[in-house]
Design a binder for these strands. Structure first.
Lengths: 151, 151
DNA sequence: TATAATTAATTCGAAATCGAGATATTTTAA
DNA sequence: TTAAAATATCTCGATTTCGAATTAATTATA
């Protein structure tokens, strides 16, 4: 096989991988969203609350980095969660440009209720793979993500 | 290891897989979107055009099934593409409920220009994995997606 | 120190997506 | 054969996300 052919084959694989991954994640997310929306949250809101619950108070801008969301979008999501009383904004004493988002007791209570069910549902949704395969896929996804991120 | 412990471990893996996959695909899509938007298309529009180019005319509703989009959203996307003269609607002679979407010459020209570059870019974006790993991941993603879809 | 560059959060308008409901047509079944 | 159920598309209003521009505060630099 010459180099051109080699390259064609590799490209076809990359394309295929992209399509298959996209479709798989669409199906998975559809399920997850369904589970979470019965608690009045969307996936982004859940992600933000979960982050605050497990990692503690965060500068608003840090949240955007972790959830991969534009700064204007975080403002919007934090507004929504604040309206629902699941988090509160707290001025940062060191740097007056910064606002911290902090999960409320009500928010904690919600996450403590949702999270185990979310984990269980996710486990069913991911039931197409066994433990070994999941570990394998985690490694592959990490490699893939790291490379793509660094471009 | 007892069954509870087993289950906890499996759940943790599922959770991790979900997070890692989501992050990876976010990074990948960000790159792909950047490449495509320089041609005035978003990812959905590109997907629709590409489908029509490679699979021929399609009933509007079929498009939604393949791209995983709500019927109201397809109407919107097809409107956009029609405005840009990349596709046209054609009444179905057999079933008057149905409208076919058909790629125009202008649309074909665009896809013929974009697609090779898209494939090449995607190949770089996916450069974190070698061919064997890609094949492996394709299989895993297929399994995962099929199972999630069937729930 | 004064000025310039950077950073954090917000506002605003536009785009993309959804779900519920409407309309037209076709298919099923009583 | 007619009435009921199903199907395809579209309209409409609401939600979520984005990018560009704005404001305020901090840090770097001349």
């Amino acid at each position: 096989m010459d180099t051109t052919e080699q390259f064609e084959k590799e490209s076809a694989l990359s394309l295929k991988l992209f399509v298959v991954l996209t479709r798989a994640l669409e199906s998975i997310e559809k399920q997850v969203v369904n589970n979470i929306k019965s608690y009045g949250l969307n996936l982004t809101e859940f992600g933000v609350l979960e982050l605050l619950y497990h990692k503690g108070d965060q500068p608003i801008q840090k949240i955007g980095q972790k959830i991969l969301l534009a700064s204007s979008s975080i403002t919007y999501v934090v507004d929504k969660l604040e309206e629902k009383h699941f988090l509160s904004r707290k001025a940062c004493p060191n740097d007056r440009r910064v606002t911290h988002a902090s999960i409320t007791d009500e928010g904690k209570q919600l996450i403590e209720e949702i999270f185990p069910k979310h984990a269980e549902a996710l486990n069913e949704i991911m039931g197409g793979l066994n433990a070994k395969e999941k570990e394998l896929m985690i490694d592959l996804a990490k490699k893939l993500g790291l490379h793509a991120q660094g471009l």
